[in-house]
Nucleic acid binder design. Structure first.
Lengths: 202, 202
DNA sequence: CCTACCGATCGGTAGG
DNA sequence: CCTACCGATCGGTAGG
């Protein structure tokens, strides 16, 4: 132990930045889970002792908070403009689904941590990210609502069920798609959009 | 501490059974998470000291293994017969989705642990439940495949994407539905089936 | 950025 | 089913 372990996973051994610690933690949290990773693991990954991490970061939870926040913001900045366009709701929904898959394919680690591990946060940090999640949800709520008002979506539709179904599909399919990569992100996005908007039956 | 704490959450204080321990753990795991719950919490819940739990159960992980196994089996026993019926694939898919929601509404705690916390298992236990998950997935894979062969589902469809979308929608919507209960389970199941099979646009 | 260490807590066991 | 305790590990701090 000692030197050999501390350098594991690092190609060089210059001074360590806060960003390097966040991205090491991002990698570890996404491959394992927040509770399974210790500060000593993060220290090993960047090549310093766990105690030394605290001159760059405040706490373990603060790291997770930033990762989750950034992970959700990646979606908000891309999806808000789509929500606010003038296109018909069905088109906006297709675009939003495809864009979601695009963001997911570019930020797979942020995504899996942001959507699955925010539960390990507590107190103010949890309240903060729940607010961000609500903002994310409201984008799809708005589009579905518009679609019903336009008369484009079936009228008897349970709007809340539709929103839950869309977000559930997007959130959960992430893990599997990233693992399998059976088609390109663009094709996968088109397929998901077609299923939700047009249905399976022809 | 002591007596008062040990009796917390229990209406009486007879001898403790293994089943009582499993159901106390089920409740705690579903409300919090496997890693956040200690053996001392489970002991408190059933009214005995944590060390005494081990005369009824083997280990903490064994408890989770059984809960996850039972949770997935609840779905397998209900969905396999639907997969094997002679009805058209679109009808079977609608039935399977509605039945899934029905099982979920009857076993919400098992469901949330089985579908979200199996990752805390390792070794043989993990391999075992991954096999059960695969069995569950294959039910929907089969129905989707049948639908494409029948010519009932759109031909250019990415079958794998369809299966991922369906399961993702069902798995993730569980948490939210149980929390919100905005409509009856039957209505919610009908809505999800309509969205996937018929699509949002009319 | 290190060594050394804190108090707390973990799953699990021994012995009765 | 209890008390008492095990070795390990946790996030985080002190002092240099």
């Amino acid at each position: 132990m000692g030197i050999g372990k501390r350098d594991a996973g690092r190609g060089f051994s210059g001074p360590v930045s806060a960003d390097a610690i966040y991205s090491a933690a991002l990698d570890l949290f996404s491959r394992h889970s927040f509770s399974a990773i210790g500060m000593r693991d993060i220290g090993d990954q960047v090549g310093i002792r766990s105690g030394s991490l605290y001159s760059h970061i405040g706490s373990k939870e603060e790291i997770l908070h930033r990762i989750v926040r950034d992970g959700i913001n990646n979606y908000l900045v891309e999806l808000r403009p789509i929500r606010d366009q003038d296109d018909p709701a069905a088109d906006r929904l297709r675009q939003a689904i495809r864009r979601h898959v695009d963001v997911m394919s570019r930020t797979p680690n942020h995504t899996s941590v942001a959507f699955h591990q925010w539960q390990f946060l507590g107190g103010d940090a949890k309240r903060d990210v729940v607010q961000l999640r609500d903002d994310y949800e409201s984008i799809f709520s708005k589009i579905v609502e518009d679609g019903v008002h336009e008369g484009a979506f079936r009228a008897l539709l349970d709007q809340r069920a539709a929103v839950i179904a869309i977000i559930g599909m997007l959130t959960f399919s992430c893990e599997w798609y990233v693992r399998e990569q059976h088609v390109s992100p663009d094709e996968f996005g088109r397929s998901l959009a077609a299923i939700v908007v047009d249905g399976l039956v022809r």
